[in-house]
Design a protein around this nucleic acid. Sequence first.
RNA 1: GUGGCUAUAGUGUAAUGGCAGCACAAGAGACUGUGGUUCUCUUAGAGCGGGUUCAAAUCCCGUUAGUCACCCCA
Length: 425
Amino acid sequence: MKINVLKGMYDVLPEEVVFWQFIEKTVRETAALFGYGEIRTPILERTELFKRGSGIGTDIVKKEMYIFEDRGGRSVTLRPEGTPSVVRAYLQSGVTSQGEIAKLFYIAPMFRYEKPQKGRFRQHVQFGAECFGIKNPAIDAEMIIFLLTIYARLGLKGFVLELNNVGCGKKECRESVRKGIKDFVSGKTNSMCDDCKLRLEENPLRILDCKKEGCIEILSGFEGTDSLACESCRSYYKELKDLLSANAMPFVENSRLVRGLDYYTAVVFEVTASGLGSQNAIGGGGRYDNMVKELGGPDVPAVGFGAGIERVIMALKSQCPDFPVSTATDVFVVYQGEKALKKVLFILNTLRLKLNISAKAAFGKSMKAQMRTANKLKSKYCIIVGDEEINKGVFKLKNMESGEEKEITENNLKSIRQLFRGKNE
RNA sequence: GUGGCUAUAGUGUAAUGGCAGCACAAGAGACUGUGGUUCUCUUAGAGCGGGUUCAAAUCCCGUUAGUCACCCCA
């Protein structure tokens, strides 16, 4: 019986891996420019971390975690999102009671037990960043610019930044926002969908997120969460908007924007792109000033984002279908006869190890078949070696584009290097 | 978790309930030392389990997987 990959998971094959390498490289380079250091945390953590970090009320924790018992009887969970792990590592690395400024980024797989569909998987990879220890609109702006810079450097076009203030972590502020929403819909709750009727008590914020027509209608005149929030976070939010505008970072205010993670305080943002099916979010984040304390650390403010690499790749592909990088072979070594076969490895070794030229060969095939393979691999040159060449102490070098052939002596194999001037030097 | 659609060779696709075809890909060959074009040949297929029927790729049930949407998210 054949065994296939698990539902919602996939293999990244060589043709596809070039996209991944390109994105990973761009993220790392950009992070270096912004002063963020890479962090790698285990994919497995104590279940408790995500329950307390992501919040027991979230869908992720309630129904999407890969959770199981290890052999020591501990409940462990495959990381469903990046932030709690980074907070844990930040704390564990030994911050003082004041908290320290730390700027960290990661590229890491996430696991959620969901029903897969376009742009949604059970294992997906996010790049993300977190900044601890600073609460200032400027760092939020920098964080957003960091994310948008990565998208821009990837060549992504047409993405939109959405922004909202959902009310800061202070009790009065939270209560005022919740109450404001409840008051606004009171009297109209009958025509709301069943989900929203439940949300009314559990998490009124989520009502804003509902896509049902009836619920959208009810909320049509809603003035937005920002106007319900407290003075201090409203002015913080305004300052952030001013900073973004002053730096030519276009954004759209979305007073309905609510993120699925409960820990966000005040600032939330999301970046959307087209060509992704019904999943149009390619990245999102916000400020989470309470999580570090809730996970047992000092009262350290924080801001961060996460972005899905699969969705970025999808968006890039839908924008420029010819994106894949060509991986043509430089030299293909063709041989004829037993004696020549002994020379093939010598030639391959010289090209690969001494001359830094990518070289291939096909063993155990007819010469014609070898040539066909060379052609299929888009080799620029072939080196042909058979009895005739061995007797003369030469190799035949064939330019596959022009068909032109010339002889080079065995000792002068290194002269091939000049054909690839500027490459891999 | 809920719902819709789909399942035939490596890939893409045909066939009133009656012999499972085609294209591409792959491999071998067409003056035994040379690729692309052309030609010939070869390999390779019903997701799985039941049922109806003389007969099932085709109809029915289940299951698995894929896919799309909802929920939610990246």
